[in-house]
Design a protein around this nucleic acid. Structure first.
Length: 577
RNA sequence: CGGGGUGUAGCUCAGUUUGGCAGAGCGCUUGCUUUGGGAGCAAGAAGUCGCCGGUUCAAGUCCGGCCACCCCGACCA
């Protein structure tokens, strides 16, 4: 493609609404444009990258026996009523002219289930693995971060149909391996982690996190055994607890702490360490209210609290009215001592506080010298705090977690019978029995992967795409568009490259050299060929976007071959296995 | 949904305090010069100052309402 014909409106400055790197570079480089919050147009360069990633995913899905289909984005709401997902908050609703309810698909378990219940009658028709690469719609509470969290995005979503558990286990692991190959081919490091299954449900699930500083998910991995888990749900290996002796500290005492409602303020006021504080957090699940106790320097983990209390309860922080009703004090002064009418769930670390500080359940007052066993007890002691770096791994004897930031780009689920049961998706097994189909669901966000790759591959000048996903393999930068000898050389290289399978952009614009260099760096094409002053000696320069300062001079005729070699080398480095 | 912020040329932003001709830089158009890291000179085009209403002789500026966008939180398949 000649640059004069290519629509790539680059910008010198990033728009003010972009504050993360991938968003800024995508807009500055002319890859995307915003239409509304969380809704973007892909311009030619952006769409090429998108298609390259989609094609890698497609190849790897086909490799494990997947068959590509395309389901509608427009889905009758009544289908989701069958599974009970019609009330999911991120669902986009609409009505047709006859006032019938529809929604825009946010994931397609129900559609696959509907397909399966009409077409699959026998165990002989399975296993099946069907997938699609399609636009998804989610009315996110807060779209943000350019392509990272949007309301309309592209996802590969695959669904497996099996007649036995072993088949589900097998396709689940095959997807894991295929995802590993996809990310490797995109040049990305990832960690597969256990996670909260959320609204999709099912027995087992695994998230795929691409590692990036700016990632908004906290990922923990055991440095010893490699066990990975999302910090949201990570358990901590129990360690021995020493409850302080009851008489080793003075009696509990109420002190005035005017204006101190936060851990930081209380610590400052009482000249105490956060570890001494016992945070008392009131949580609600329906009508049930519990008080959760964690050490002042720790965070409460709501999913773990729900798990500890049981019944798979979904807890949320209690509103201030509830807090005031239960503690008879404003938010910020709750404490376990004398707290009645609610269950008290304590994290084990809290018991170790020999000389604790808690809210006094009175306005502007705290209790000091508080001790577990003497001044209060818990209904239940359970691991309910958010895990972090250095905490013990629950899967091995002596490993500890290290913490990384990740971007969730894939999530796979063993759904089991969750949808088959709700929607009556049955088949006849070899004994003639009617049984429900065993399902699995496997998502991979294409557009989010685009952003994640940029988060990992950029410098102060712009993007440095891995060649497997780059919008072009190479760019020919012609320094002077008026110089006939440069034009002749550039044209020869351009045509030779194209016929040898190298996708080249030829920048023959009548612009200052600096503009062309800046644009080439910004849009991140891996191989740069500079056709300029060396032309007198019949030479051009070849540079790599990812290795600033490195360049080689080659004769004009030799350039296409060398460029093809470099492309093959770069691709080779991204080969899986 | 709660808290905070922003809305003026394609982009980045002044101007709003104290009401009085609609501004700058970048980009764009034309011409000449220039061509190895976002060129120089000259001439130009470009605006419903987010929208609606109000106050006023006069509103980008003051008042009321609404909308959009961004950030923090809640939420998040």
């Amino acid at each position: 493609m000649k640059a004069t014909n290519l629509y790539f409106p680059t910008l010198r400055e990033a728009p003010s609404d972009a504050d993360i790197v991938s968003h800024q570079l995508l807009v500055r480089g002319g890859f995307i444009r915003k239409l509304a919050a969380g809704v973007y147009t892909y311009l030619p360069l952006g769409w090429k990258v998108h298609q390259k990633i989609a094609e890698i995913v497609r190849q790897e899905m086909n490799r494990i026996g997947g068959q590509e289909i395309l389901m509608p984005a427009l889905v009758p709401l009544e289908l989701l009523e069958e599974s009970g997902r019609d009330k999911v908050p991120v669902l986009f609703h609409l009505k047709d002219r006859n006032e019938r309810d529809f929604c825009l698909g946010f994931t397609h378990e129900e559609v696959i289930a509907d397909l399966a219940r009409t077409d699959i009658q026998s165990w002989r028709q399975m296993p099946l693995y069907l997938y699609q690469i399609q636009t998804k719609f989610r009315d996110e509470p807060r779209p943000r971060g350019g392509l990272l969290r949007v309301r309309e995005f592209t996802m590969k979503d695959g669904y497996s149909l099996d007649f036995e558990d072993a088949g589900l286990d097998s396709i689940f692991e095959k997807n894991h391996e295929a995802y590993a190959r996809v990310f490797h081919r995109c040049g990305m490091e990832f960690v597969a982690v256990e996670a909260d299954p959320g609204a999709i449900g099912g027995s087992e699930n695994r998230e795929f996190m691409l590692l990036a500083e700016s990632g908004e998910d906290s990922v923990l991995q055991c440095e010893r055994c490699g066990y990975g888990v999302n910090a949201e749900v990570a358990e901590i290996r129990p360690k021995p607890i020493t409850v302080a002796a009851p008489d080793s500290v003075p009696s509990a005492e109420v002190v005035d702490t005017p204006g101190a409602h936060t851990v930081e303020q209380v610590c400052q006021f009482l000249k105490a360490a956060p570890q001494q504080l016992i945070k008392t957090i009131l949580c609600r699940s329906g009508d049930r209210v519990v008080a959760a106790l964690v050490r002042g320097d720790r965070d409460l983990c709501l999913p773990k609290l729900g798990k500890a209390v049981g019944e798979g309860l979904n807890f949320e922080l209690a509103d201030s009215e509830t807090v005031e009703r239960v503690t008879r004090a404003p938010v910020g002064f709750a404490g376990p001592v004398g707290l009645s009418g609610v269950e008290i769930i304590a994290d084990p670390e809290v018991l170790e506080a020999a000389d604790g500080i808690t809210g006094a359940n009175q306005p502007e007052r705290h209790l000091v010298h508080v001790q577990y066993g003497r001044d209060y007890t818990a209904t239940q002691v359970a691991d309910i705090r958010t895990a972090g770096a250095g905490d013990g791994c629950p899967k091995c004897a002596d490993g500890h977690y290290r913490q990384m930031n990740g971007i969730e780009v894939g999530h796979i689920f063993k759904l089991g019978l969750r949808y088959s049961k709700a929607m009556g998706v049955c088949f006849q097994d070899e004994t003639g029995q009617n049984r429900e189909i065993i399902m699995g669901s496997y998502g991979l966000g294409i557009s989010r992967t685009v952003a994640a790759i940029i988060e990992a591959y950029h410098d102060e000048d712009g993007i440095a795409w891995p060649i497997s996903v780059a919008p072009f393999d190479a760019v020919a930068i012609q320094i002077n568009s008026d110089d006939p000898s440069q034009t002749k050389a550039a044209e020869a290289i351009y045509h030779a490259c194209r016929s040898s399978g190298v996708d080249m952009m030829w920048d023959e614009r009548n612009e200052r050299p600096g503009v062309k260099f800046k644009d080439a760096d910004l849009i991140g094409i891996p191989i740069q060929v500079v056709i300029g002053r060396g032309i007198m000696q019949g030479k051009v320069e070849i540079r790599l976007r990812s290795e600033k300062g490195h360049q080689e001079e080659v004769v004009i005729d030799g350039a296409p071959l060398r460029i093809a070699e470099i492309k093959a080398d770069l691709l080779n480095q991204l080969k899986p296995d």
